[in-house]
Design a protein around this nucleic acid. Structure first.
Ligand SMILES: [Mn+2]
Ligand SMILES: [Mn+2]
Ligand SMILES: [Mn+2]
Ligand SMILES: [Mn+2]
Lengths: 219, 219
DNA sequence: AATTAATTTTAGATTTGTCTAAAAATAATT
DNA sequence: AATTATTTTTAGACAAATCTAAAATTAATT
């Protein structure tokens, strides 16, 4: 069975919106995919026919085993290509998402496996997100939100909570990226801003919003 | 202006069918693209509207300057990706064409330029075909058909006349590939077969059809 | 030159994915 | 419980790309 790019994008979106419990609503999908609820309804009927998800009128959708498998394969390709773009082709980690949105639909299984091997079987993409292996298994990252990092505990930035251009612009300006070593020096309860220290730099404060968008792991 | 994958495939097909002189006929395009003449007519009208080619009823089509530019950009991507697959990912040169048919439609200009630089600006793809540079210029290969190679003149295989699986299977069996050094030892006028000698191997004969499908350059 | 053959175009239908507007179902408030 | 608001589905239309069958044009033969 093979699928169109549109179908694959729906499956991936459902995968990302799907929490452990509930089903994914028509409106949530429409928002995520920048389309209209009516279009989503049509597509859900079609994907149900293809056995990729369960769906009942007014009850939203939930991926089947098959659907999850497909979603993981697409996410795997997306993140492997992002890793390739940054690691091999020297892209900035803030300019790879759009390109990977296209590359994730290249169908060759052999290409994915060879690419994975060439890259040395990386387990996290340039944004700190885990890359599913060829069986769909992902490493679990022991990452913690920067806002929750204890004072003076050395840690390394390993992920971001969003891929928005605005966030990435701010991080670039502050010279913060994946791998940056830092410690939290002080927290201010007034606005929940925190003071951080990066090696060889003066310490400076960042906003609560920024701190919540950063994930770190202790080193 | 951006184009659909279908439109790009039409432009590339016209580019390959277009000789110095004549226009490309509707039927030739239909055959090349495995579609019907009626579909081709519809698309030619559309591509004319988009100024990618000139077309008059019953007179066939011919790429405009714009159309040629687009075609060269697609061919450039196709051949760069083929080179990447063989050179970097260790694909066999007989298994890359289908994958490149998909990769050639990835739109990022930056990706193409970075890939080109990473590969070291190769000028020929794994089949011996020239790779257009970023301005659309291709090196001219001084290749000659094996059937026309003079006796005892050392030469190197640098291209094939077709990408058919059948041909590639035969070449694999005979251990002939791009870069293989050989000389023609004898020609037989009865069936136009030729006897060739590869370094460290006993000489053997190959058919007229095979010799005509191989391009070599003297070394 | 007239007839036949081949090529190409039109006409009309189909599939996929989308949209708007209206109807139906569900959820939230009074 | 009844009303109102929100969400979701249906109905109908549209654009892109394709197809078959029939008509029109061009090319090849008698
Ligand atoms: Mn991404
Ligand atoms: Mn990512
Ligand atoms: Mn190819
Ligand atoms: Mn090639």
């Amino acid at each position: 069975m093979s699928f169109t790019i549109t179908e694959e994008n729906y499956i991936k979106a459902i995968f990302h919106l799907q929490q452990e419990d509930g089903n994914v609503s028509t409106n949530a999908l429409a928002a995520e995919l920048h389309t209209k609820a009516a279009s989503v309804t049509d597509m859900l009927k079609k994907l149900k026919l293809k056995k990729l998800l369960s769906y009942e009128k007014y009850q939203g959708a939930r991926l089947s085993i098959e659907g999850k498998k497909l979603a993981l394969a697409i996410v795997r390709k997306h993140r492997l290509w992002e890793y390739f773009l940054v690691d091999t082709l020297q892209f900035g980690w803030d300019e790879v998402h759009e390109v990977a949105e296209e590359l994730e639909h290249i169908s060759s299984k052999k290409l994915v496996e060879k690419l994975d091997a060439f890259l040395g079987f990386p387990r996290f993409d340039p944004h700190g997100d885990p890359i599913p292996d060829s069986h769909g298994k992902m490493a679990i990252q022991q990452q913690v939100n920067l806002i929750d990092l204890p004072l003076n505990k050395p840690a390394e930035v390993c992920g971001v909570g969003s891929q928005s251009t605005q966030l990435l612009e701010l991080l670039k300006h502050k010279h913060i990226g994946i791998g940056t070593r830092l410690e939290v020096k002080k927290t201010f309860s007034f606005d929940h801003s925190i003071e951080i220290k990066i090696r060889n730099q003066n310490s400076f404060t960042i906003s609560q919003q920024l701190a919540q968008a950063l994930f770190v792991k202790p080193v």
